[in-house]
Design a protein around this nucleic acid. Structure first.
Lengths: 236, 236
DNA sequence: ACCTGAACACCGTTCAAGT
DNA sequence: ACCTGAACACCGTTCAAGT
C-alpha cells in the first residue's frame, strides 16, 4: 500500500531497486543511486536536514533498508564527499605549479559551493575516497615537481586544502539560498556594525569595507598570499 | 529524590541555582554557570555529545529548565563560543603588526585546542559575542595602523580568521584524546598510504613526510606564508 | 522566578520476520 | 538479496502545572 508516492512517473515504481528484478544483481548501481539521491536531499534540506529517514523517503523505502547498502550515516557521508570530489577536474600538468594549485583551489571552491553545505560534507569526513585521493596525489605531484622539499610538499598540500575548505565553510555558515534574504542579511550586518559601542572604533569605521568585501576577491587574495608564501620557500 | 549525585561535595546541594534562595535574584550568575558547565560537558563528551539533556543532568536539573536561562541550543553554543574567546588575551599594540597577528593566531589556536572540539563551537556560531568582537576589533586595528587599505584590512582579517579556525578544525577532526590511540592512528595512516595502488606514486613516496609533518610547524608555515602575502600588498 | 512531567515530533540503528 | 515493522535509546523544544 501507499506505493508510487515518490515520483510522478512512468518509470518503474521503485526507482531505487528496479534492477533487482530487471537484470543481474548490481549492487554498484544501488550505491551510486543512493549517493545521488542523498546529494539531492542535501541540496533540498541542507546538512542538518539530511536524515536517513528522509533519504529513505526520497527513495521510496523505509529507513532500515538503507543499512543494506551502507554501513551507517558516516559511510554515506564519506561516499557523498567522494562523489562531490569526482566533479573536480584533474590538474593540467603542463601549467606552472602556481597555476595548477590556483586552478585546483578555484575548482574545489566552485564545486563545494554548487552544493548546499558541500563544505560541511567534506569537513565531516576523512579524506579516504578515491577521488579525494586522486586530487591529493595531483597536488603533491605539482608541488614536488616544482622542487619543494618533501616536508614542504606535505605541509603546503595540507595547508592549501585546509584553507580552501575552511574558507568555504566560513563563507557558507548562516547563508540562505534566497538572494533577497542575503541582501537583507548584508544590510542588517552593516547597520549592526555601525551601531556597535564606542569600544570598537575600527570596526565601526570599517563597517562598509567589511560588509562589501566580495567573497571572490577575498578568496583570491588569501590564495595568492599563501602561494606567495610558498614560493618564497622554494629553495627551502 | 536522587539529588546530590552531581558533585561529591560540601557545596550547596544544587550548585546551579543555590543563589535563588541564598540572596537576591542574580540571573547573570546562572547564565555564567550554565555556560561553564556546558564547556565541562563539551570536554567530557565532545561536540556531538553535548546535549541539552546531558547539560541538564550535569546541573542536577531537568532539560526543560534550561530554557529558562537560554533561548535554545544555538544561543547556548554562541555563549560558549564567546566564553572560549574570553580566554584569548588582547593584542600587544606595542609590537609590529606581523607579530601582533602571529601572536593572536597562536593564542586562538591554543585556546581552541584546549577544549575538545573547540573549533567546532566557533565554526557553528556567528561571531557576535563581545569577546569575539573585541578580538576582531584588535585585528582590524593592527592592520589599519600598519597602513593597509580598508578593503585589504577587511579581507586580511577575514582570511586570517578563516585560516586559523579552518586549520584547527582540520587538525581536530577524527582526533582522540588518548595519545596512544593517536600514535596508532598515525601508524595506520602510514601503512595505509604506503599500500595505495600505483596510481598514486607521489602519495606513496611522500607517506612519511605526510604522516610525520608536525601540526605546529604546519600551522606556523601557513601563518608565515599568509603574512608574507599580506605584507607584499602593504602598498596595495 | 524557576523547576517539573509529560508530551510532540523527530533522530540513527538493530533485528527478527517476511518475500 | 533485499525490504519491513517494530522497537530501542536517544534528540530539541513546548507548555500547563506546580512551588
Amino acid at each position: 500500500m501507499a506505493r508510487d508516492k515518490t515520483a510522478g512517473g512512468q518509470q518503474p515504481r521503485n526507482t531505487f531497486a528496479p534492477w533487482a528484478t530487471a537484470q543481474e544483481r548490481r549492487p554498484r548501481l544501488a550505491r551510486d543511486e543512493l549517493v545521488r539521491r542523498a546529494l539531492k536531499v542535501l541540496n533540498a534540506q541542507g546538512f542538518d536536514g539530511l536524515t536517513m529517514r528522509r533519504l529513505a523517503a526520497e527513495l521510496g523505502v523505509k529507513a532500515a533498508s538503507l543499512y543494506n547498502h551502507v554501513r551507517n550515516k558516516e559511510e554515506l557521508l564519506a561516499l557523498m564527499a567522494d562523489a562531490i570530489c569526482a566533479e573536480i577536474p584533474d590538474l593540467d600538468r603542463t601549467e606552472p605549479w602556481r597555476e595548477q594549485l590556483k586552478g585546483m583551489a578555484r575548482e574545489v571552491r566552485q564545486v563545494l559551493m554548487s552544493y548546499r553545505d558541500g563544505a560541511r560534507v567534506l569537513a565531516a569526513t576523512p579524506p579516504i575516497g578515491p577521488n579525494r585521493i586522486r586530487l591529493i596525489e595531483q597536488v603533491l605531484h605539482a608541488l614536488q615537481s616544482a622542487g619543494f622539499t618533501p616536508a614542504m610538499v606535505a605541509d603546503a598540500a595540507y595547508i592549501a586544502n585546509s584553507y580552501v575548505v575552511g574558507f568555504v565553510l566560513d563563507e557558507t555558515v548562516g547563508r540562505t539560498a534566497d538572494p533577497a534574504a542575503e541582501k537583507g542579511r548584508a544590510e542588517a550586518a552593516r547597520a549592526w556594525f555601525k551601531l556597535l559601542p564606542a569600544e570598537y572604533p575600527t570596526l565601526v569605521a570599517l563597517a562598509d569595507a567589511l560588509v562589501d568585501s566580495p567573497a571572490d576577491r577575498r578568496f583570491e587574495l588569501g590564495l595568492e598570499a599563501l602561494l606567495d608564501g610558498f614560493e618564497r620557500r622554494l629553495g627551502k
